[in-house]
Design a protein around this nucleic acid. Structure first.
Length: 497
RNA sequence: GGUCCUUUGGCCGAGUGGCUAGGCAGAGCUCUGCAAAAGCUCGUACAGCAGUUCGAAUCUGCUAGGGACCUCCA
């Protein structure tokens, strides 16, 4: 079998994946900022890296997957009056940042469960690691790369760049950054515009604040990831992931901080997922075009023609390579919904199918084709996680499975060995690696019993050519949103819309 | 303005120097009491121009459109 290759944003090419410690993988993914609700765009990295996490485990690696919660910063709840921050109100009336952060952390976890993502091995919070961040800043100052101004600490990018490869990850040229004329907050304190904050002095109205050697303040925007990644994965670890929009300045800054602090480049493979776009434009708060996950699941957004099941979103995302942009539209999502349904129905049929031996019916050509397509599941995943190509292969196999199920072709068209392999591989990839589930949950035993009864009555009616009764059962169920299908051979199946 | 990326059939999207991805939608047919599923068949696309090549949608250049980052951002 081929070896795993991943596209490294740092080198801008695919590289063979070799873990630093044999058999183990350390992976850090930038998590959500929990000052507001997650939207569709946020779903992409977490689903992408969930599949990567699952696939690495499938390959036999012991993976430590760290995904942080950014719960420190300059927070305000959307729509909430800024005056809330001022301490003239009673404690219970005031905006309590930890309450805000807890609310959106819970909502985030709920959404991730809906997507069937596995929980990270460690999910550290920024507020829980203030001490580590302060220590790291101290080390950077001691090393001569940080300087304090008015209770804030900045990283000296120019000095760093003199002896290090600053800007390589994001393709930035320092001179261009130094030449910028943009007016940005706190700019006057910095020695150079390209410098970034490690620690910020907190204004009186700033609601999240901690004591530090430089006075009361809060950590800079990039230090949390460096501190927590170092703590849980070590000075140098295998994979660091996140959205492409984090390339600069976030990840570039992380490299600089960690390199000074730990005397080594922190990450072996940088991986970045591309954006989800809507009308060709990145979905983001500043563009005012976000669709929140709760809106997506419930269909309550002017742009949505209907509600979309979380699994549809997951499937939608997997149908594209993670480094390509993915354009949102109702048409595309409905296409994904239909596709997932067909794949899942067929998958369930396959798992129920039993091999039936039969002489002289093996179709060598078909068997070779199936074997090849199954082997390609691994090939495609090993080639920088080509989930879209694996799905395409699955859809090539779908008609074969359906034909077997409908007895259009004998199951013995392929040998028992290949049949068993087919079942196993489909299960591994569909459920274990892609993390897909059925859209309809019909696991209710009592309902199952009722349906069995109705099906029996309908079969009776049909055998007596009493189509009035049989149609009534089916039509009334349809009105309730339950589809009853006659199958070849007299069986009946059903599912809930 | 700088850096980088991208442009594939009605829609979404793989892929890549020769071997027509796939999904959705659409058309026809088969099966079926009807329906729904399912199966079969069909569309022959790679922004434009020029070049490299025996051969390019795939490489190079130019032109045009779109986008990301340069500021918090998945």
């Amino acid at each position: 079998m081929s070896e795993l290759k991943v596209y490294n944003s740092y080198s801008r090419q695919k590289e063979v994946f070799e873990p630093i410690t044999a058999g183990h993988v350390g992976m850090y993914v930038c998590g959500p900022t929990v000052s507001g609700e997650s939207h569709l765009g946020h779903a992409r990295p977490y689903i992408t890296f969930d599949v990567i996490f699952r696939y690495l485990q499938h390959l036999g690696y012991k993976v430590r997957y760290v995904r942080n919660i950014t719960d420190a910063g300059h927070f305000e709840e959307e729509g909430r009056d800024a005056i809330d921050k001022i301490s003239s109100k009673a404690v219970l009336e005031k905006l309590e940042p930890m309450e805000l952060v807890t609310k959106y952390t819970n909502l985030f976890h709920w959404a991730m469960d809906q997507f069937n993502t596995l929980k990270p091995s460690i999910e550290p919070t920024a507020t829980g690691h203030i001490v580590e961040q302060i220590e790291m800043i101290k080390a950077i100052i001691d090393a001569g790369y940080g300087y304090e101004v008015n209770g804030s600490v900045y990283f000296d990018v120019k000095k760093y760049a003199a002896s290090h490869d600053y800007g390589k990850l994001s393709g930035r040229v320092l001179d261009d950054l130094l030449a910028t004329t943009r007016e940005l907050e706190g700019q006057e304190e910095k020695r150079e515009t390209a410098d970034f904050a490690l620690w910020k002095n907190a204004a009186p109205e700033h609601i999240m604040r901690w004591q530090s050697p430089w006075g009361v303040g809060y950590p800079g925007w990039h230090i949390e990831c460096s501190a927590m990644a170092t703590k849980y994965l070590g000075a140098k670890f295998d994979i660091h992931g996140g959205g492409m929009d984090l390339l600069f300045p976030h990840h570039e800054s992380e490299i600089a901080q960690s390199t000074i602090c730990n005397h080594t480049a922190p990450v072996r493979y940088w991986m970045h997922n591309n954006m989800i776009t809507i009308d060709g434009r990145k979905m983001g708060k500043s563009y005012n075009n976000v669709i929140k996950l709760t809106e997506l699941f419930s269909g309550t957004h002017p742009l949505l023609a209907k509600a979309y099941h979380p699994m549809v979103i997951r499937f939608f995302i997997l149908q594209t390579h993670y480094r390509s942009t993915l354009d949102f539209s109702n048409e595309a999502l409905q296409g994904a919904e239909k596709g997932l349904k067909r794949l899942w129905d067929t998958y369930e049929k396959l798992q129920k199918l039993e091999y039936i031996d039969q002489d002289n019916v093996v179709d060598k050509e078909l068997e070779t084709r199936i074997t090849k397509q199954l082997a390609e599941f691994d090939e495609f995943m090993n080639d920088d996680f080509g989930t879209a190509r694996v799905l395409a292969n699955m859809f090539e196999i779908v008609p074969v499975i359906n034909s077997m199920n409908d007895k259009i072709i004998p199951i013995a068209s392929i040998s028992n060995d290949v049949f068993v392999l087919l079942k196993e591989k489909m299960k591994t990839f569909v459920e274990d690696i892609f993390g897909l589930k059925g859209i309809t949950e019909a696991d209710n035993e009592k309902l199952q019993g009722v349906m069995d009864l109705l099906i029996e009555i309908r079969k009776d009616a049909k055998s007596k050519k009493d189509f009035v009764t049989s149609d009534k059962i089916r039509n009334e169920l349809t009105k309730l949103g339950i589809t009853l299908k006659d199958e070849k051979g007299g069986g009946m199946s059903w599912n809930i819309e």
